[in-house]
Amino acid sequence: MTNVGTTLLSADYKAPGGKLLRVRLREAEGRIESAKISGDFFLIPEDSLPKLEMMLEDVPLRENELKLLVDRFFRGTGARGLGVAPDDFVKAILAAKPGESGS
């Protein structure tokens, strides 16, 4: 179910490292309701990704807040990406924002 005022947003973002991040968001009033991140990247440990998706819930869809959150995720979990850098997750999520261009 999609609540009134909820917008579905999406972006495919090709990271400079070579891998693709595919972001699907539910957004309402400038905040992320839920986030799904998929793609052909590598991330160790693999089971850390759902934690990032959960952490994104109710976060404003703004660069500064997203940068802080993604940084906290990588520091907190010790997760390491290959083919994607932490900042690519921020850019991929922002690319889904209306008016922003994904690649």
Partner: peptide, 9 residues
Amino acid sequence: LGCFQSAPL
């Protein structure tokens, strides 16, 4: 599929 990939996509 890779473990992070979306099947429908």
